[in-house]
């Protein structure tokens, strides 16, 4: 067999899931397709989804093997941060990639994250929708305006040094992710923001890769008044404590 593997660095992709039985086979297939030349594993952390995501994960494990697909989970739905910690217990790689399983994050970008990381030995590489060729699909003008405004206000108040704070498609050195999850207490969008702000505080280096974010969840359920209130609360918390 031709040796396509560039290096033996191992990458662990942590995929927290909840009710993703439809998307999970697709995201796994895409990861396998686009990560061909890398040494990697996918760790599925399913929080006992009622739609049977865990069963789907186990079926995929039969197809692709236990080396590639690790299936784990918790009794009930817990926070994202704790899903990362749980997943990391199984991670054999030095680098951890976290992404959403709902197909809004395309695995083709992981290879670019890896190349970016190698460029300057970055501690973190984050996908960005707000720079270069990055962008979104499926957002109307109102959604874009809210997103851009929130991002602008955040940039002015926190000066975090990265263009996309609320995204959750990132590559971390494992020990860096461990340290960050330990020191971040926020939830939801704000959790991702806090991770970047603390990274900046600790002096971790962050590289950015433009990504296209394809939103397949229609409607505005993800951005109601409560979401905006939680965001502002989190912003003020970070503004006054970091």
């Amino acid at each position: 067999m031709r040796n396509k593997r560039m290096s033996e660095t191992k990458y662990s992709i942590i995929l927290p899931t909840y009710n993703e039985s439809e998307n999970l086979p697709l995201i796994i297939w895409l990861i396998i397709k686009h990560m061909e030349s890398e040494n990697f594993e996918v760790i599925i952390v399913d929080d006992n989804s009622p739609d049977g995501t865990t069963q789907v994960a186990l079926e995929l494990q039969k197809i692709y093997g236990k080396e590639k697909i690790v299936v784990t989970g918790r009794e009930k739905k817990l926070g994202l941060g704790s899903a990362y910690i749980h997943g990391m217990k199984f991670a054999k790689g030095d680098f951890v990639i976290i992404m959403d399983a709902d197909l809004s994050h395309h695995p083709k970008f992981i290879e670019q994250f890896i190349q970016k990381q190698k460029e300057k030995n970055y501690d973190i590489v984050t996908g960005t929708r707000y720079a270069g060729d990055g962008g979104v699909h499926g957002w109307n003008i109102k959604r874009k305006a809210i997103s851009r405004t929130a991002n602008y206000v955040t940039q002015v108040l926190l000066r975090p040094g990265v263009s996309d704070l609320t995204g959750s498609f990132r590559l971390y050195k494992k020990r860096v992710l461990e340290k960050l999850v330990e020191s971040c207490i926020s939830k939801g969008y704000v959790f991702q923001m806090e991770m970047m702000v603390r990274a900046n505080q600790f002096g971790f280096s962050v590289g950015e890769v433009p990504i296209s974010f394809v939103d397949r969840q229609f409607g505005e359920s993800k951005l109601g008044g409560n979401e905006i209130f939680q965001f502002l609360k989190g912003l003020l918390y970070l503004f006054s404590t970091t």
Partner: peptide, 19 residues
């Protein structure tokens, strides 16, 4: 600045089709 960024926010139609 915000108006400019909203108007230049890429639409990624190709990425959606490819997906």
């Amino acid at each position: 600045i915000i108006a400019y960024r909203v108007s230049t926010f890429n639409n990624c139609d190709e990425a959606a089709k490819e997906l």
